[in-house]
Amino acid sequence: MTPPSVARERILSRLRAAPQIVMTAPAVLTSPAEQSPETMLEQFRRGIEAFHAEVIDARERTWPIVLAEICATKRIATLMLPPVGMVNLQPWLDGPRLSRFDRPIETLKTELFDATNASLTIADGAIADTGTLIQSDPQRMPRTLSLVPPIHICLLDVRHLYPSLQSAVAATRWAEAMPSNLIFITGPSKTADIQQTMAYGAHGPRELVVLLTEDL
């Protein structure tokens, strides 16, 4: 076996020896025209519902009360919260036992994988045209919190909507400073690998509930 550095040089020199085709860079891709917040919200809702998520509008109410109702109907016994930064929910939620993702996953795996019914996260924004939630800060929202528990409840501040992924890329500073992990979530986990029949809860959450708020 050639040493890896040799492999690198050989591959690059083969590519450089190939005929050069000079092309101009693709034009900066256009984003859809600005849309009203109501239109975008409507689009978002339709989009993510088509991907089997449940959307609950909690703007007229206090969202922790709505959350408590969700926990009750879904019989959530254990709910895991992000490390920091959430209002104290204890007074609102008397049903589920609350825990926090406040230690490295190495010491939390059993609890996360085997003893947590649901997780609560906050989206950093959402994409209207596909109905997609954005989680862009793994320090605030650990990656696995939106993935491992069977039910994922996600708070979305409706003021943070982008018309499209393209416009989100243009509006954020991701290209200059990428988070270690940027996750786009559109619905609960699913698969159609058995005879093209859709089944939810493949490896990630079986249910995704989006709570719309305005006061985060």
Binding site: I105, T130, T132, P138, Q139, R143, S180, L182, T186, G204
Partner: peptide, 21 residues
């Protein structure tokens, strides 16, 4: 599908202060 359920952009291993990855 207009998009898949997950679209995962990975730019680095776990950074200081992160709990997983």
């Amino acid at each position: 599908q207009a998009i898949t359920t997950y679209f995962n952009w990975i730019s680095s291993p776990r950074r200081d202060g992160e709990m997983d990855g």
